[in-house]
Design a protein around this nucleic acid. Structure first.
Lengths: 155, 155
DNA sequence: AAGTGAGTTGGTCTATAAGCCGGATTCTGT
DNA sequence: ACAGAATCCGGCTTATAGACCAACTCACTT
C-alpha cells in the first residue's frame, strides 16, 4: 500500500478506495478502516482496523492529566470514525464533514492519497504540493511540543 | 466508542446517547453509566459502570493530606452521578443541573460529544471549538501543578 | 473493437435523531 | 395534609443523513 494517487470525491464527500489498496486490505482480511485527524498537519490518516487497535490502545494507556497527552487523545481518538465496508463492493467511504473541513477538502473534487505501507493519508492537493516543495501550509494546526515519551511512538 | 458528534439536548436537558456509542455499551452488557466532572476543564466525563469501578477505587485508595489529591477526590468522586438506562430505549440521560452548569451547557441546545474509546466526554460546543483551535476557554478551571504520582494515573 | 475492470454517479430506502406530547412522580408552599 | 407546580420519563411522529444497490462511462488490454 505505497504510492501517490489523485482521486476524486463526489458531491456527497464519498471516496472510493483505489483498487491497489483495496486488494491489500482484502488480502489481510480487513473489513474496517478508521479515519482520523493527523495531529500535526491538516490531513487525515486511514488505518486498517488491526493497526488502529494497536494505536488506540497505546494512546488510551497513556493516561493521566498531562495536557499534551490529552490533546493527542482528543485529536486522534476523539475524531476517529470507524468505517465498515463490504469487501465485494467498491469500498465507498463517506468522510465525515468535520474531517473534510479539517483537511480542507470540503469543496474539492480532487484529493491526494499517499500510501504509507499499512496506512494511507488524505491531503488537499494543494497542501500536499506545498508540503512536497517545502512551502508553508495555509492551515495552521496544533504546534505541539511532544514529550520524549511520545515522540518515539508511531501514529 | 470513538469519534466526534454534535447532538442536541431537549428542553429538559436530556441527552440521547448516539447509536454508535449505544451499541458499544450494549455489547459490553453495560446498563449504567457514571457521569462526573473533569477536574481540569469545564467538561464532563461519562464512564460505563465497569470502568468507573476501577477508577473510583484507585482514587479512593489515594490517601494522604495532599490538597491536590483531596481536590481530585472531591471533584471526581463527589460529583459522580450514576445513571441507569434501558438498553432497549433511546438511552435518554438526564444530566444533573449542577454538572450542566459546570460544563456550561445549561442553556445550550447543542453539545459536543467526544468518544475516547471506553469513555466519552461532553463539551459546550464553543469551548470544544476553542480548545481545538488552541484558543483559551472562557471558563477557567483548576490550574493545578500535578504531583508526579498523579500524572500517570488514569481518570 | 469488444470485453473487462476500475472509477464515478445517481436513486432509493432505512435507521437515527430531534421535537412533541401526555402521564407520572416529586417537590413546595400554604 | 393537600393542591398546585415543577420536574422527570417514556412513547410517538417526522425529517433526514447516510448506507445500500445498481448503472453508466471511461480506459486499457488482448
Amino acid at each position: 500500500m505505497y504510492g501517490f494517487n489523485t482521486v476524486s470525491l463526489d458531491q456527497k464527500g464519498r471516496l472510493a478506495i483505489p483498487a491497489k489498496y483495496r486488494s491489500h486490505l482484502i488480502n489481510n482480511n480487513e473489513t474496517k478502516v478508521v479515519i482520523t485527524k493527523d495531529p500535526q498537519y491538516p490531513s487525515l490518516k486511514v488505518y486498517p482496523e488491526s493497526q488502529w487497535d494497536e494505536i488506540s490502545s497505546k494512546l488510551e494507556s497513556l493516561q493521566g492529566l498531562d495536557p499534551i497527552v490529552r490533546n493527542l487523545q482528543w485529536t486522534i481518538l476523539g475524531n476517529a470514525s470507524v468505517i465498515e465496508f463490504d469487501p465485494n463492493s467498491r469500498m465507498l467511504v463517506l468522510i465525515p464533514s468535520e474531517l473534510r473541513k479539517y483537511a480542507d477538502i470540503s469543496d474539492q473534487k480532487q484529493i491526494s492519497l499517499i500510501g504509507m505501507g499499512n496506512k494511507f493519508e488524505i491531503w488537499n492537493v494543494n497542501n500536499w504540493e506545498m508540503r512536497q516543495t517545502g512551502g508553508s501550509l495555509s492551515t495552521e494546526i496544533l504546534d505541539v511540543i511532544l514529550p520524549e515519551s511520545i515522540k518515539s511512538m508511531s501514529f
